[in-house]
């Protein structure tokens, strides 16, 4: 009984995922399966077009965190596009919004994907080396 319509396409080394409906307890497992199947080691970014997303429950937030955490070691970016006010509030209240970059539209998001990370400064190098032997 899915409450979410998902449309996925590849754009170069990125994935664009268009969501419509609710990312909730019913649809989150399906979302998780789809994302798990599609993310490959060479993936550089996942763009979630969320203009049609009406609601995200805690089950949905859990999958958004899992996705961002999965992309992080690949050095890939997680980008949200067109987030509605309602969903923005959920992301803000939970703090999960900070896991995602934002873009005005899919074109801008894909351009963001191409941008290389600036080389880390002193503190960046120090932080990334922190905890390593």
């Amino acid at each position: 009984m899915s409450s979410l319509k998902m449309d996925l396409r590849r754009e170069g080394s990125g994935l664009v995922l268009v969501l419509e409906g609710q990312l909730d307890g019913n649809s989150a497992p399906e979302f998780a399966r789809l994302v798990a199947e599609q993310i490959e080691p060479e993936c550089r970014c996942v763009v979630i077009s969320a203009g049609g997303l009406q609601f995200v429950s805690s089950a949905g937030l859990r999958e958004l965190v899992t996705l961002a955490r999965r992309l992080n070691p690949l050095g890939a970016k997680a980008i949200l596009v067109g987030v509605t006010t309602t969903v923005e509030e959920v992301l803000e209240v939970s703090g999960i919004g900070s896991f995602y970059l934002r873009a005005a539209d899919t074109t801008q998001a894909l351009a963001l994907c191409q941008e290389r990370e600036a080389p880390p400064g002193f503190f960046g190098r120090w932080l990334s080396g922190f905890g390593k032997s």
Binding site: P29, R62, S98
Partner: peptide
């Protein structure tokens, strides 16, 4: 405050039940 919110929310997700088959 932002970091605290994220860490609290992630902790909460860990102690919450999510079935694989939806509700």
């Amino acid at each position: 405050a932002g970091l605290r919110r994220v860490s609290q929310f992630e902790q909460m997700l860990k102690v919450t039940h999510y079935g694989e088959g939806g509700l």
